[in-house]
């Protein structure tokens, strides 16, 4: 028997709980609706053979997202009964991931965006080797609290493996960035 079936059956009690509009869903759906409508409008300018499918798809998308918007705004689902008693291990993986991201502070988000942003900006400018080495050392030292030595060895090994695989064995190009350092 699964968790759901053990849960007591709610009668009127569930309905009395206040329905709340799910704001993220509202925003996401609105954005998607705008994209679909814009795509539709763009497609109206093309010749028939190139336009029929985009028109159909963006039209269908607009209808699907508009109807979902109506659902979000006017028929929000009853809030689930609080499942505080559910043990961590019984939660589905999607649920765990969802909660993981939900529990992040805005500091966490800014921090990871800065680290990733820094890496990819460095990649665009200096190419993979420099970006990778700088990121590896800095990240391991300051974010993962490893020793300088560990960070340096890690960076050298990673760079070495990439170099060996791509430059020597496979002879495949790697991103060199604006300065062409690859």
């Amino acid at each position: 028997m699964s968790i759901d079936t053990i849960r007591p059956v709610h009668g009127e009690e569930g309905g009395s709980r206040r329905r709340r509009v799910n704001k993220p869903d509202l925003i996401i759906t609105s954005v998607l609706l705008v994209v679909f409508v814009a795509a539709y409008l763009m497609a109206t300018g093309w010749k028939e053979l190139a336009a029929y499918f985009p028109l159909g798809v963006s039209g269908a998308g607009a209808i699907a997202s508009a109807s979902f918007l109506v659902r979000v705004l006017f028929f929000p689902p009853k809030p689930d009964a609080p499942k505080t008693d559910v043990p961590e291990s019984a939660k589905s993986m999607a649920e765990q991931e969802y909660e993981f991201f939900k529990n992040l502070t805005s500091r966490d988000w800014i921090s990871s965006i800065c680290w990733l942003g820094g890496f990819f900006i460095a990649l665009a400018i200096f190419g993979i080797y420099v970006a990778m080495a700088a990121f590896t050392v800095a990240y391991l030292r300051f974010q993962a609290d490893k020793s300088w030595l560990f960070a340096a060895i890690y960076a050298v090994v990673l760079g070495g493996v990439i170099y060996g695989a791509f430059e020597i064995i496979l002879k495949l190009p790697l991103p060199g960035g604006l300065l062409g350092l690859a």
Binding site: R107, A122, V130, F142
Partner: peptide, 23 residues
Amino acid sequence: MRKFALGLAALAIVGGTLTGCSS
């Protein structure tokens, strides 16, 4: 806050030296 500022700073330093060298 300090930590990610450091991350960016490290990249900037490496970057600076490299732009100097490449001609």
